[in-house]
Amino acid sequence: MSAAVKIEHLSYIYSEGMPDASVALDDVSFEIEEGQFIGVIGSTGCGKSTLISHFNGINRPTKGHVCIDGEDIWANPKDIRRFRFKVGLVFQYPEYQLFEETVYKDIAFGPANMGLDEQEIDRRVRRAAEFCGITQRVLDASPFELSGGQKRRVAIAGVLAMEPKILVLDEPAAGLDPEGRDTILGQIKTWHKETGTTTILVSHSMEDIAKYADKVLVLNAGHIAMYDETAKVFARAPELLALGLSVPEVTKVFLRLREMGLDIPADVYTIPYAVKTVLAAKATREGGSAC
């Protein structure tokens, strides 16, 4: 079976041929398998946003190919909308894209563009709204009356309602309070689990990536620095720090403990796993002292 997303030798140059041309992506190749939850990290300006807007053909590669479900999306440029519905993209600060009179209509904008019938649109809007915790009262309100966090949820619901096979989110939790953050990311994870949607999450928060992603893609200056399972990536903490990135706080603690001579694994990146390793270490120590 072909990969959900396959990027082949992708290069992208901004304002090519002009004096201010700059290379945003340089010969990037990788694959994402169906149903995975991928985290994308990298310092500001490393090309994360440029990369993800290639997935649904917002950016057209200067060189290379983007294949979704084994099809080159630029094989027939007139057909690009089909891939825009297959790959749902939530941009940074998506609340600025709201425009309709009511929240309901705004969420329905994507499905309506797909040419679905009324009933199907209604079903999808209600499903997406329920997932994002949008109540009937909010559905009837104007999107401009809502709070920042609510607007964000509406915007995300607007993309979820298209029920894309691949969901790409560019910092969906940026600028939200900790509770709003956890709620939104939790809802995305639930959606991922229930629908099996391939999900790509761009984030600056290592904690969030550690909590949700199966695999992590690390970008640095338009190149792929690492692409591996979450545990393996966070085990390479010194390299990540050298790239101007960070590791989850709990990983930092464990690395420091290792430096102090404790025999614990280097790939601890979530609290539950940390608790398990600490308990295991304690058990062996007690077992040892009993001898």
Binding site: N56, R81, R84, F109
Partner: peptide, 19 residues
């Protein structure tokens, strides 16, 4: 810049701006 961002966001939802 803002217009481009909004256009991209709407294109991602299937708005026909370039076709």
């Amino acid at each position: 810049e803002e217009t481009e961002k909004i256009m991209n966001a709407q294109k991602a939802r299937g708005a026909q701006l370039d076709s």
